[in-house]
Design a protein around this nucleic acid. Sequence first.
DNA 1: TATTGTTATACTCTATAACTATA
DNA 2: TATAGTTATAGAGTATAACAATA
Lengths: 153, 153
Amino acid sequence: MSSRAVQDTEGQDAAVVGCSTRAIRALVAELHKRMDAHQRGRSADFDLTPTQAKALEELGRPKTARELAAVLYCEPPNVTYVVDKLEKRGLVVREPHPQDRRAKQLVLTEEGRELRLELLRRIGRDSPLAHLSREERAVLREQLVRALDGAQA
Amino acid sequence: MSSRAVQDTEGQDAAVVGCSTRAIRALVAELHKRMDAHQRGRSADFDLTPTQAKALEELGRPKTARELAAVLYCEPPNVTYVVDKLEKRGLVVREPHPQDRRAKQLVLTEEGRELRLELLRRIGRDSPLAHLSREERAVLREQLVRALDGAQA
DNA sequence: TATTGTTATACTCTATAACTATA
DNA sequence: TATAGTTATAGAGTATAACAATA
C-alpha cells in the first residue's frame, strides 16, 4: 500500500488513505480476505471446503439443519448438500431429534470431533494475526465490537 | 450475541468472547458481511452487481483488463464478462492502448464517471459505520492498519 | 516464445420450488 | 395449516483451456 496523498475523488488511493467510511471498508475487506484465505488454506489441508470447515466448527454442539443453516447464513438445501459430504466422510451423523420427529440432530462422530479440534488448532497457529500481542488483539477487538454495536444488523 | 462465558473448546460462543484469533476472525467476518451487504444493496439501487460496482469504482483511472483483473482478484475472462455488461450500458469503452497494441484501455464514459460518483456518494451515506465519530473511525483505522501491517500478504 | 484479450466450456456454490413426513 | 428436511433444478459467479493478434 503506497501512501500517495489524496489527490482527488477519482484516485483509487483515496480508498486506503484517511479514515473515511470507504477507507475503512477497504481495510476491513483486506483483513477479511487475508483471514479468509488463511482459513481456506488450512481447511484445504484437511480436504474441506470453507463451508464444510465452518459447518464442522459450528457443530461443536449438535444442531438441527435449520439451526446450522442460520449460523452458516444459507438456505436449508445447502445444509443437506454440505452435511451429505461430511456424513460420507464419517464426520457427522444424522440422528433423530428427541422432541420433534420431523427434525434431525446433526452430531459429530468421534472422528469428526477430533478433526474439528485439529482444524481449530491449525487455524489458530500461524494466523494472519499472530504478530499482534494479546493487548493489541484486545484493542482491535474492542474497536470491532464498537463498530458493530450501533450498526444495523 | 450472548455473553455466555467461555465454557469449553466446543462451545460456539468461544468464537465471540475473549480476544483469541478466532474471536477476532468472527468479528471481522461479521463487520465485513454488513459492509458487503450494504454495498450490495446500494449497487443494486443502480442495477449493478457487486463486481460491476467494484469495477466501476476501480476505473476511476483507466486500466487494462489485466490490471482490472488484479484489483478485482479474478481471472481475465471474468473481466471480459463484466466489462461487456458495463460497455452495453454505455458506462465503459475499450480504447486501443497507446503503447501496446495487444492491450486495451478500459475508460469510463462521461455517463460512467457520473454514475461512479453517485454510487460512491450513496455508499458513503448511511453506511454501517455512520454511527461512529470521526475519532472513533480514526482509532478503528489505526488498529486495522496495525493488524494488516505485520501480516503476510 | 511469451503475453493480451477473447471465446467456449465446466465447475462450484447458492437459491427457489415441489415433495414427504411429521406437528 | 404450518414446519423440517430432502430432492430436483436453475442461476450466478468463477475457473481452465484453446485461440488470434501482437510483443
